[in-house]
Design a binder for these strands. Structure first.
Lengths: 220, 220
DNA sequence: TGGGCATATATTGTCGACATTAGTCATTTT
DNA sequence: AAAATGACTAATGTCGACAATATATGCCCA
């Protein structure tokens, strides 16, 4: 999905990525117990490798671990999703501000080109590109902040949790055209080096997404 | 230091806390290599326990790990500290906003009382309480947000990194009296349930701290 | 019959040994 | 002489076995 430089070197890496994928996509159900023995036979690695993978998942908040008891996949709750979006609003708002400050002109031009290509595809009705496009857009802003902590918390942590919610609660993409307009305005603000506006627009963009999701959760 | 519920159950827990403390306080120097064998003899536990502790430290970004090579304590850099404060500004600003929304009247009253006691102590010239008081104040706001992700990222992650910088760069507390005024104003905004103002004041408060630190780094 | 306690079992926590990899140094070849 | 290649070494990665802990079962007693 992400064209990130997350490449697996060791078995623990591979197992971690595989487990994370299986959890995010709901192959391993939310709230279910993660037995080290069971997983070590299933993934054909030793318990130590599974333990390391589970520990990493725990620090990503995809699983919760209790000493001498074991680990469970986190349970999905509406409040959890709201809280996730509150953090996203704060962090990605700051990311947009920093992107307006630190992104190079080339990076901004690339991002504008990316948005154009997305727009063409959406115009042709290929709305299934929406999620990938949205991910791409947010990813570029976040990396454009040039802030390693920000990047890590979002890309390595929150985004996987958000994806888990979206996949398992069946939140495929509504809000296609409006979201694209919002993306466009954010990029314009960044191109104008208007930090204040970039942050404000990004925060509103995420707030709208949150409200939209809340609506679906309540009336759906 | 923190009266948190972080209590060690297993040896890995204890070793993790001990290692974290030694790194934050500079007993293990920034940038130095962490040899698993060496540490396992030093802390009198097996290599597996050390490995688990190091892995946890890696996800806290206190150490950096490279596959088949080893782990090093992160290097301190002025840019790193700036980036940390950028993330703090975003997250604690949101925390103040959410605290204004979700803290109970009792929690707010407690916090005001805490501030009063701090003020009395500072008035008497006991300025060495400043850092602990500051930590207490920020900790209450963050937990008052009732947002688990926010709490975890800040309390389990960033605060230890910030403390590492403060300890090792010798940033003991200046800005005592002005910081107290800022704290007071933030609490007032929260008591008035003014989310917008609470967030804005908190962001400024952290921004001022950042500027103050930058000044010391440059002229110090 | 219901509750508390002791035992039993299954799971996690811990350990030491082995396998594998990266880095170093010496040798060889051009 | 310089560069490349090969083996050597020391570290990390992986594994299976043992120890400690929590939950479940069943027994005893009120």
């Amino acid at each position: 999905m992400l064209a990130k430089s997350e490449q697996a070197i060791t078995n623990a890496d591979r197992t971690f990525f595989q487990l994370r994928k299986d959890i995010v996509e709901g192959i391993i159900p939310a709230g279910s117990k993660l037995s080290e023995m069971e997983l070590s036979t299933k993934y054909e690695v030793s318990r130590a490798v599974i333990r390391e993978a589970i520990n990493r998942l725990a620090t990503c908040h995809l699983v919760e671990r209790k000493a001498n008891v074991g680990a469970r996949v986190v349970a999905l709750s509406p409040e959890g999703l709201i809280q996730l979006y509150q953090v996203r609003e704060a962090l990605e708002g700051m990311a947009a501000r920093l992107a307006a400050r630190y992104m190079t002109d080339e990076e901004i031009a690339d991002m504008q080109a990316l948005l154009d290509s997305h727009f063409d595809k959406v115009k042709d009705g290929q709305s299934y590109y929406q999620e990938a496009g949205d991910v791409d857009f947010h990813y570029r802003i976040v990396t454009g902040s040039k802030n390693d902590h920000l990047i890590s918390v979002l890309v390595d942590g929150l985004y996987h949790l958000v994806r888990m919610y979206r996949v398992q609660l069946g939140m495929a993409g509504p809000r296609v055209s409006t979201a694209f307009d919002e993306h466009r305005h954010i990029v314009n603000a960044i191109a104008n080096r208007d930090e204040e506006l970039a942050e404000m627009l990004m925060r509103r963009h995420i707030l709208y997404s949150k409200n939209n999701i809340e609506k679906k959760l309540n009336h759906g």
